[in-house]
Amino acid sequence: MSGDEPKVRRMKGPRGHPYELIDVPNRLARKVGDFHVDPASIARVQARLDALAARYPDMALPEWERLAAHWQQLRSGAGTAEDDEGFRRIVHDFKGQGGSVGYMLITEIASSLGELQRQADLTSETARQAVDQHVAAIGTILRGRIGGDGGAQGQALMAGLRLLAAKASGERAP
């Protein structure tokens, strides 16, 4: 025995359900030693993320072009299941990535767009126009390199998009 093996205790729950409680030796703590989150390392990482953020619009624009292409296909009625899946996936990716590199407005718009997809009847013209505006807004932000929440203009844009989304969702087909 090295002392590194998990210790298994056979237990019973109050209703007699058997289960095993496995005590796994904490090899990671021994390996790493004293590690705690500290402000200096957080600041150091933030500097690296800022450098990544500077490249983000260039990295994301080709993806936005794919998003717009999928949407055009879907909007015209010629879209395939791949267009639908591709569109959903890219929206989801934008939602996760934007805010991770300081483009919170991208995350907000993608989040609203995702909600629109779930709530609205995308065959209605109102919903289609709302999607048009969301997709166009993401492109505008990337081309304009508008970081953070976009300031007052960004928030006004976001409020307008939310209104459009709410209106489209209210017209959901029965």
Partner: peptide
């Protein structure tokens, strides 16, 4: 690293 959980097989 510092607050791992036991495992359970149930």
């Amino acid at each position: 690293i510092h607050h791992p959980r036991n495992f359970v097989r149930a």
